[in-house]
């Protein structure tokens, strides 16, 4: 299962790496960097507070 996690993260990273430069040229370095942080933090908080992750308890 960790390989599944590994694959998802590994395959998306080259896409992000290829896109971040052109995006920074288009909208600016600061905007791109802050945007990446804000979107990701929003996703993290949303999944933490909704459903499965919030209910997760350590196994006995």
């Amino acid at each position: 299962m960790s390989s599944f996690d590994y694959l998802g993260s590994l395959t998306l990273m080259p896409v992000g790496l290829a896109a971040v430069g052109p995006l920074a040229t288009e909208v600016g370095v600061r905007t791109t960097a802050v945007g990446a942080s804000v979107v990701t933090a929003t996703v993290c908080l949303a999944v933490a507070l909704s459903g499965g992750l919030r209910r997760l308890r350590p196994a006995e």
Binding site: G8, A19, A24, T40, C44, V47
Partner: peptide
């Protein structure tokens, strides 16, 4: 659901944050 929702967050981190760090940080 906790597994895939955590993976969603990891994917965002790898697709958005790490590329910004590795490319824009040195720049």
């Amino acid at each position: 659901s906790w597994v895939w929702s955590a993976m969603l967050a990891f994917s965002a981190y790898h697709a958005l944050v790490l590329p910004a760090v590795f490319v824009l940080g040195p720049l």
